[in-house]
Simulated assay, not measured.
Amino acid sequence: MTSARRTAVAAGVLFLITEVSAIAGLALYQPVLSDPGYVGGAGADGRVLLGALCELVLIAAIIGTAVTLYPVIRRQNEGLALGHVAGRILEAAIITVGIVSVLSLVTLRQDGAAAGADEGALVAVGQALVAIHDWTFLLGPSVVLGMNTLLLAYLVYRSDLAPRPIAVLGLVGGPLVTASAIAVLFGLYGPAAHAISALPVFAWEVSFAVYLIVKGFKSIPVADRTIASGDLHPEPSMA
């Protein structure tokens, strides 16, 4: 297996991990996100902590996709490739803030109840922490994700790394999910409608991932024959 093929498979697997871990994390968080009285009840802390672990895996996979693809897409446009890496790191950082807010709520439920804190105050603080998570979910996996998707899909389209229809899904889905998140930000509609707008990005990431795993890169932007033969890291020219 050439270096290019290994890179394609690794990137595809990491993209699939982002999808699975993101969905699993959100599902496991539901007790704390949907129940305003979570801090005063029996709680489902183990489930919520498992959700946080899933999102930590998500963060690692998000950064991994950018780092893995960078040696390939930088040969099309190094500035945009760097922008994609920076954007994925920003996306991961925003998600981290959401994880901290959820873990803080678990601590609040455990320690607040033990200390005999006022239940009304606990609920108010708990709702504030949930609101922080909700905002990070809107900004990170929506606004920033959309911009990252547009960057990568553009580079994939220009480099012909995957079939054009797959890249077009990202070119359409990226701006759509960002615009939809901004609409939610200004109260034009709710999260349910916004979730529908994320489907093209989901389709882009899954189809791109499957293509990379099954077929590899359709073509690779090359700077010399060494790269074309499968080496993504050629020796620098002495000229």
Rank of each mutant, 00 (worst) to 15 (best):
L56C: 13
V100H: 07
D45F: 14
V32A: 12
L90M: 15
P163N: 05
R74G: 05
A42D: 14
I227A: 10
S104G: 14
A203E: 12
V39T: 11
R6T: 06
P175E: 09
A167S: 15
G64Y: 01
L56G: 14
Q110E: 14
I182G: 06
G112D: 06
V177M: 05
P236N: 10
G190E: 11
S219R: 13
L16K: 05
A124S: 11
T149M: 07
L185K: 13
R158H: 07
I94W: 00
A128Y: 06
Q127F: 01
R75C: 06
S207W: 08
L212P: 02
S142F: 08
D231W: 05
G120P: 01
V72Q: 08
T226F: 10
V210A: 10
A60N: 06
A93T: 12
L199P: 06
V85I: 15
A113D: 15
A124K: 04
A24K: 01
V39Y: 02
G230M: 10
V222H: 12
G83A: 10
P234Q: 15
A42R: 07
G41F: 09
G12V: 06
I166F: 04
R75W: 02
H194S: 08
L188K: 14
G12W: 04
A27S: 12
I17G: 05
K218Q: 13
R47S: 09
L151E: 00
L212C: 13
V177D: 01
L33I: 09
V214Y: 12
V125S: 03
S237M: 09
G46T: 10
L53W: 03
L69F: 02
V72H: 07
T7E: 02
S101E: 07
I62H: 04
A92D: 00
L150K: 00
P141H: 03
G126Q: 01
R75V: 02
L69I: 12
D134L: 10
F217M: 07
L90I: 07
R158K: 14
Q76W: 01
G41R: 14
L155F: 01
L58Y: 02
G79A: 13
G112F: 03
T68I: 04
T7W: 00
L53N: 06
I220R: 09
W135T: 04
A27C: 12
G83L: 06
V177S: 02
V100G: 06
L50P: 00
M1V: 08
A128S: 13
M147I: 12
G37I: 03
A193F: 12
A131N: 14
L161V: 03
G98H: 03
G87P: 00
A8V: 09
L28I: 06
G116E: 06
L108I: 08
G190W: 02
D134G: 11
G112L: 05
P221G: 08
L176K: 01
L82I: 10
Y154W: 07
V184E: 08
A93H: 01
V97I: 15
F208L: 13
L188H: 14
G216V: 08
V168K: 05
A66W: 00
A11W: 01
S229A: 11
H133D: 10
L14E: 03
G25I: 01
C54Y: 01
S104F: 10
L69G: 00
M238L: 15
V72E: 04
Y189H: 12
L56P: 01
P236Y: 05
V172A: 15
